[in-house]
Design a protein around this nucleic acid. Structure first.
Lengths: 203, 203
DNA sequence: TGGTTTTATGAACACTGTTCATTTTATTTG
DNA sequence: CAAATAAAATGAACAGTGTTCATAAAACCA
C-alpha cells in the first residue's frame, strides 16, 4: 500500500524536523532551554504533537546522542587506512580530543550528560559506547600482537586509556580548566595530549 | 551588642539547617528532586524563607560543593606524613579515587555538575579546584626535584595526571562503565588504577 | 506601651514535562 | 460525491519547578 509508505515517510520527516530543531536549540541554548514548548513553537506545532513522535523529552536527546556518535564514527573512518596499530591509536586519540574540543555540547551529550543514559532501561546495553570502546580494544589488541602493552588485561587497559582522554575532555567541557590560571585551553589540551602519548609510548 | 551576635548565630544555624536538609535530599534523591519546596517542607518553613538565607538555589549547591571539598581535604591531610613525593602522589591518587567511589554524588557535584560552577561569576576563580590542583602541582614539583618527570611542564603534566583519575571517576559517576560488559566496577577501577600508576612510574 | 525593624509567609508569575478529551484532517466505504 | 471511520493535531489541564513580593507576624528598641 503506497499510502502507508507515504505516511511512514511523513512520520520520519516530522521526526527529522523535531530532531533538527531540538539540536539547533540545544547547541544554541543548552539542554535546559530546549523545552518541548520551545521546539513546538519553532516548528509551529502544538506541544502535544511532539509526543506523537517521541515518547518523552529525553527520547529526543537519546536520538541526538546517537546521531552525534554517527558524526564521531565518520571522523574515525579514515583510521582504517592507518596500518600500524599504535599509530592508529595515537591518531584515534587526537581525533577523539579534537571532536570534543570542536563539539563541546555534543561530547557532553554523548559522554557526560545523564539524559541519554536514562533511556537505557535496566540491563539494556549502550550500543554507541560499546562500539567506540570495542574499536579501542581491537586497536590495543593489535598493538599487543606487535609486542606493546605486554601482560596487560585489555579491558582495564582500554578503560584506563579512554579515561585519560575523557578526563581531559570532561574537565574542558565542564569548565574546570580554570585551575591552570593563565593557560590557553586549546594549547593546554594539546600539550597534555603530547604528554599523554608519551606515557602510552613507554607503557 | 549581644543580640546581634545571637542573630548572627541564629542565621548561621538556619543556613546549616537548610544545607543539611538539602544535602540529605540531594544524596537520597539527586539534584533535580532537591527543590526549594522539598527543602522548605522538610524544615517546616515556607519556600520564600529559604531565599532570605540563600540568594538562589545553586547558592545552596555551591555551599554543599565547598563542604564536599572540605571532606576531601580532610582525607588528604594524612598525606603530609608521606615524605617521598612519588609515594605521596600514588597515595593521593588512591584517596582521590576512593573518595569518588564512596561519594559518587559529592564527586559529581564537585567535579562534574554545572550547578556550582555557575555561581563563579566571570573571572572569579574556583578556589576549591585551585587548592586541589596546587597540591598536585606541588607534589609533582617535589617529584621533579628527585629526578622524576624530567623536562615536563608542571601545569600540563598535572592536568594530564588529574585527567587520568578524573576520567575514570567521571565514567563511573555518569554510568558509562557498562562498556566493559560483565566487569565488576570496583575491581575494574582498581585494576585500571594499578595500570595508571604503572604509566606514571615509567614517565 | 507604641513605633520600628527584622523575619516569615504564601499567593502569584512564568516556566517545565506530560496527558487526554476534543477537534480537525485524511482516508475508506457505501 | 456523501457518510462513516480512522488518524493526526490541538490546547487546556495537572503537577511540578525557581523566584519575587506585598502582606502579616514576630522581635526589638525607645
Amino acid at each position: 500500500m503506497a499510502i502507508e509508505d507515504r505516511k511512514q515517510r511523513e512520520r520520519e520527516q516530522m521526526q527529522r524536523l523535531i530532531l533538527d530543531t531540538a539540536k539547533e536549540i540545544f547547541l544554541e541554548k543548552g539542554y535546559n532551554q530546549t523545552s518541548i514548548r520551545n521546539i513546538a513553537d519553532k516548528i509551529e506545532y502544538s506541544p502535544g504533537t511532539i509526543y506523537l513522535y517521541f515518547k518523552e523529552k529525553d527520547d529526543i536527546f537519546f536520538a541526538l546522542h546517537n546521531e552525534a556518535f554517527g558524526k564521531l564514527f565518520s571522523l574515525f573512518a579514515p583510521l582504517a587506512m592507518v596500518e600500524e596499530p599504535f599509530e592508529r591509536l595515537k591518531a584515534m586519540g587526537k581525533l577523539y580530543m579534537d571532536f570534543a574540543f570542536n563539539n563541546k555540547d555534543l561530547y557532553d551529550l554523548m559522554f557526560i550528560m545523564n539524559a541519554p543514559m536514562n533511556m537505557l532501561h535496566e540491563g539494556c546495553e549502550w550500543k554507541m559506547g560499546d562500539r567506540v570502546f570495542d574499536t579501542l580494544v581491537n586497536t590495543l589488541s593489535q598493538c599487543q600482537e606487535k609486542g606493546r602493552f605486554k601482560k596487560k588485561e585489555l579491558q582495564a587497559l582500554a578503560f584506563m586509556i579512554w579515561s585519560g582522554l575523557h578526563g581531559m575532555c570532561a574537565i574542558y567541557c565542564r569548565g574546570r580548566m580554570g585551575v591552570m590560571h593563565d593557560a590557553n585551553e586549546k594549547e593546554m589540551l594539546e600539550q597534555a595530549y603530547t604528554y599523554y602519548i608519551d606515557t602510552l609510548n613507554r607503557l
